[in-house]
Structure formats: C-alpha cells, structure tokens
Design a protein around this nucleic acid. Structure first.
Lengths: 208, 208
DNA sequence: GTCCGTCTTGAACGTTTGTTCAACTATGCT
DNA sequence: AGCATAGTTGAACAAACGTTCAAGACGGAC
C-alpha cells in the first residue's frame, strides 16, 4: 500500500547521485560546509549509504574531483571542436572564450576547486587525480599551441613551456576574478590572453 | 621558589605570538588542521587565551592574513628597492626573481594562502583583508610597469591591465608549481615571466 | 609585605564531526 | 507465496570542535 521507504539502485547510479550531491554542497557551502550528513541530505539518502559506497569521505571527494574535472575538460574540448582543425588560431580562441564563459568564471566553481586543492595537499588519492586531470588539461593546450606553431611554420617552438605559461595565465586570471570580480571584466581577460598568445607565438622565432 | 606558571605580556606581544603560531599551524597542517587547541599548543599558551584576545577564531585568522600578506609585500618591495630607480626594467626583474625565490615558491606558504582564500569566501572580514592587501600588491606592480613604460617613452600604456595580467601570470605559475613542482623549474618560470614583460611592453605601441 | 587588578588558566558545555553496525526492507528468484 | 540476497536505514559512538566562564595566579602599586 504505502510508498516504499527507499528504492534500490545500481552502484553506478548511487555513486553518481552522491558525487553530484557532494559537488552541489561544495558549490554552496565550500570546503568547511561539506559533511557526510549534508551530502546525504542533499542526495536524499540516509547517512549510512555514503559509507556503504565510500569507505572514507575523502574517497568520495576524490571521485567528485575526477568527475568534475573530466566534465569540464570535455566541455572545453567540445567548444574547441566547433572550430575546424584547419583554423588553429580559431581553435585556441575558442578555448580562451570557453575559459571566460559564465560556466567556468563562477565563484561557486571556485569554491569547489579550492576544496579540491586543499585536499590534494593532504590526500595522495586526490593528488593523483589532480596530476592526471591537470596533465590532460595541459596536453590539450599543448596540442592546440603546437598546431598553431606548425601552421605558421615556426620551428623550435617549445609547446610544453607555452602550455604551462598559458594555463598559468588562464588559471591566474580565473583565480583573481573569482576572489574579486570587480578588478577586471571577462572581456578584458579574453583580450589579455589573446594578446599573450599572439605575443608568444609571434616572438617564438625571435623576429616580428 | 618554583617557576611561575605563566608570564604576563602586553596585548601586542600576545597577539603577535598567536598570529605566528597560527601561521605555523597553517603551514604544517593546512586549513583543516587549524583548531584553537592546536594554535594554543603551538604558541605555548592555554586554550582560553585565544578567546581572550580574539572573540572568534576567524578574527585571529584575518589578523594572520593581514600580517602575512603585509610581510610578504614588504619583502618584495625591499628586493625591488635594491635596484636603483633609474633601472626600471631591473626593478621589475627583481620583483620577478623574488616571486620565484624559495621563500615564496613554497608549498607550505601555499597551504596558508589556500586557507585564507577559503575563508575569504565565507568571512567578510577576511574578504576585506584580501581586497586591501591584493590591491597594494597590484599597485606595486602597476607602478613598476608604468615606470618602465615611461622610461621607454611608450604612450597610451594601460598599466592597470598590465598589472592585472602580470600578477595573474605570477599567481598562476605559483599555483601550478605548488600543486605539482615537477611540471617546470623556477628558472623556467622566471624566463616565461620575463618574456611576458618584454612582449607586453614591446607590443604596447603596436610596433616592434 | 600585602593587596588589588587583570592576565591567564583549564574544566565544562553543547555541537558537529566521520565512521560503525545491527536491524530492516525492497527486490529477484525459485 | 515465500525465501534469500543485498541495498538501505538510522541510532549509536568516540573524538574533536569553538566558545564560555569561574577560579587562579602573576606583578606592579602602595
């Protein structure tokens, strides 16, 4: 007669439910407001279920980090792929534009990442997730930059260093904007980054 | 006869003692390991003393943020001032070198800043400290960049935007290195930043 | 030497934390 | 229909948290 007190789900469904709930909690309350009880309430399940699927809270957060980072990277890649491979410069611009879109330039997302970074200094599990996902992120940038250098016939271009510099500039602008959104506008951020790209690629061979 | 169980100190001395202890705790254990009991133990005082000088723990952290940021900025300014004002480019290089010195490029310091950033999204008190200290930081950079542009006779130079970009690049490289020190060396970071400066100042007028 | 003011102490309180586990129940199988 | 399995629950636990406050002790004033 009465409604069932709970439904049974597959392990994959449950894990996704818990991960999404954890990400919402992090976005809302930051790292300090993230407790097993908060996550359970947000997911609409009982407290004990979390420890049934994750031995420790940190394991869930590591999974959430991996999920969020993968999703973000996939979204960036999709934006890049809207531009044909023949237009190497345009693909790079698509990446930059995506980096300053409302989905990324978001104080809530910043709170989530702050929590991940904090935990990565304490948990090797999270540290590993960071290393792999950030490596993928930089690989994408490196490929885009190398393609551009190749298209312009630039030789001896250090794509690795360029990718590190560009990702640092993007991350730094993202960081500053999330900490205080009044210092500059997203458009100014885009202009600054575009200029960096042109400067770096333009002077890579030592001439103009 | 016996040693006194405690010594009385001035309010300023006590506050400094507590601030330094809090900073050491943050460097060691990060934001999560920071409790009033840990700070008290590190400072060698009783638990109650903290709440005697600071109504709330966040007030102590805000004070610690202000202290650490001021000290860091003063150290940077001192390094810059070792180069004569006539050498605008050299002063900027001194700032860059100081940014990649062992004192700054330090995972322990990173943990401290992570805690400050996390708290700044929650406490208006800490947010205010961030806004003022970061404003000072960017003002110094802006002055150095404007001096360089003036020395080179560049007109229409947007020092504000340049300072934002340079600080973002520096912060981004600092962030990446602290999260994973194997991706690039400090010297590579210096080279990248120097190149950014030359590129930005060189192309500011639109010619080579 | 004694006294007073206040700086300092540490026990105590009420929350909240992560984790455990015995009990319960939905669900597929026979 | 009933059984076995396993997904789910929520009470319980010990530990740690920030904060309060009455009691204690140092150190200067007299």
């Amino acid at each position: 007669m009465g409604e069932p007190k709970f439904n049974r789900r597959s392990a994959d469904d449950r894990r996704r439910l818990l991960i999404d709930a954890a990400l919402r909690c992090l976005a809302q309350h930051g790292a300090d407001g993230l407790s097993t009880r908060t996550i359970a309430a947000e997911a609409g399940v009982s407290l004990g279920l979390i420890n049934h699927y994750y031995r420790h809270k940190d394991d869930l957060i590591a999974d959430a980090y991996h999920s969020a980072a993968s999703e973000l990277l996939a979204a960036m890649q999709a934006e890049v792929d809207r531009v044909p491979a023949s237009d190497a410069r345009g693909r790079l611009s698509a990446f930059v534009r995506a980096s300053f879109s409302g989905q990324v330039l978001n104080p809530d997302l910043f709170k989530v990442w702050l929590a991940f970074w904090s935990l990565s200094t304490r948990s090797v599990r999270v540290q590993e997730v960071h290393d792999t996902t950030y490596g993928d992120y930089r690989s994408l940038l490196e490929r885009l930059l190398a393609d551009l250098a190749a298209a312009r016939g630039i030789e001896g271009f250090d794509a690795r260093l360029a990718a590190i510099g560009l990702s640092a500039l993007l991350d730094g602008l993202w960081l500053e904007w999330c900490l205080n959104a009044t210092t500059f506008t997203p458009d100014e951020g885009i202009a600054m980054t575009e200029r960096w790209i042109d400067g770096f690629v333009g002077t890579a061979t030592g001439h103009c």
